[in-house]
Every structure is written in C-alpha cells, then in structure tokens.
Design a protein around this nucleic acid. Structure first.
Length: 224
DNA sequence: GCATTAACCACAG
DNA sequence: CTGTGGTTAATGC
C-alpha cells in the first residue's frame, strides 16, 4: 500500500483530504512507472481507475475514422481519465507515456467517495476539468482557424513555454505523431520544420529543437 | 486561367 | 522513422 500522507506530489484536490482520507487513499492506490512508449490505458479497455500523473509527459489519443489523433499532451501533475472513467465502462481514448512517467492508479470508487463527502476535493477536481475543457476549446479554434505554419509554430511554442519552460528541448513526438497532433501530414511537418530551420526561427537537429526567434514564431502563430 | 497550398506517393537514407 | 522531390486536387484572385 502507498503512503499518501507523506507524498510530496499531491494534486490540488488531494491536498484537501484529511489524514484519515489520505490513509484511505493510500490503501486504494498503486504507484506505477512507465517508460516512453508504454501504454498507460487503452481505448476500448475496461476502466476502473482514475490515474494521477505524478511526473512525466503523456499523450492522449483517439482512434479516428481515418487515423489515430493526438488530442492533447498532458504534463504532470494532473489527473488522467476522469472523463473516460466516470460513468463509463470502457475507455474512450488511450493514454501513452511519451517520456518516463510516474503515475498512481486510484480506485474509482474511493475517488467518487471523496467527491461525495469532501466538497473542497470535488471543487478542485472541477477546476481541473474546467481548465481542461477550456484548452480543448482553444485547440478546436486553433485547428480550424490557423494554417499549418501557424499550427506548427503554436505547437513548438507550447512545448517551449507550457511544457518545458525553456527554449531548447527534445521533441518527444515523432514527425508522424507531430502531424497527428497538429492535424497535418508528416511530410508537411518535415517541410515546415526545415523551413523554420532555414529561416533561423529554430535550430533543428533531429529531435532537438531550439527556439531562436520567438517573435517571428509568434507572428506566424497569429498570421500563418 | 494562374498561383498557392497541402495531401498523397514514391524512393532513399 | 525521416527527408525530399514530383504530382495532383482544391481554392482563391
């Protein structure tokens, strides 16, 4: 069993729990490590857990009519699978680690119990779901109204700013995955990436990307 | 019409 | 898996 009482990586929701509740949580969760590429849960499979992403990076993806699509990239700390576990018997999407990742599997019933009995806990869960829904609205607009250059520039800036917090990072996605993420073909991703590189907007070296000209990328994100 | 854009295909590292 | 070049269909001017 886990010792959740002394865990340093608590979600905002879990921070509201009492010692008794934390004890209870520890008795009903399990900590697991995943390597890059490991599937954390799979679309179509039976689901009975809420998953807390303690550290690492995860892609959420859905099998569409034509191909697999990456819906979002989720960084720690956050809950995975709330929409797919609550009131659903099977997962409606998959989650795969794209970096070494540590998660806690939490029994769905205990999670529900906290929601019923602890209003602050429920509130923090709602806050997280709200911000997630907002970002999915934004992604919807981005996808529809930006051209490919804009979408890719947006993705690169998102990785640099929101995910890694620095201008130099290793792109955890392959070109194909990047295409699935920004809704384009892998060829276009390759082309535009080398274009950005040639124009000195980024330095590209395989998977390693450095943002060189943030202003221009931001302009491209806005105007394509 | 003509130009542009981006997907699809094919082939080579 | 990546990078490129050629071709093609759709769209805008």
């Amino acid at each position: 069993m886990n010792n959740c009482l002394d865990c340093k990586i608590k979600s905002a929701a879990v921070k509201t729990l009492t010692s008794d509740e934390l004890q209870n949580l520890g008795n009903n969760c399990a900590q697991v490590y995943f390597k890059k590429g490991d599937i954390i849960f799979k679309e179509g499979a039976f689901s009975s857990n809420i998953i807390f992403l303690r550290s690492g990076l995860v892609k959420i993806h859905i099998a569409g009519p034509a191909k697999n699509q990456i819906t979002k990239i989720t960084k720690a700390p956050s809950f995975l699978g709330i929409p797919t576990t609550f009131n659903e018997k099977i997962n409606h999407y998959s989650a795969t680690a794209i970096e070494p990742t540590s998660v806690c599997f939490i029994d769905k019933d205990i999670f529900k119990d906290f929601i019923f009995k602890n209003g602050k806990f429920a509130y923090e869960v709602i806050v997280e779901i709200c911000s997630s829904e907002l970002s999915s609205f934004e992604k919807c607009v981005n996808r529809t109204q930006r051209n490919i250059h804009g979408r890719l520039a947006n993705a690169l800036l998102t990785f640099a700013e929101d995910i890694y917090g620095k201008d130099e990072f290793e792109m955890p996605l392959s070109r194909v995955e990047l295409g699935n993420f920004v809704d384009t073909s892998r060829e276009s991703v390759c082309r535009i990436l080398t274009e950005f590189n040639n124009d000195k907007l980024i330095r590209l070296n395989g998977k390693s990307i450095t943002i060189l000209n943030r202003e221009s990328l931001e302009a491209i994100r806005l105007y394509g």
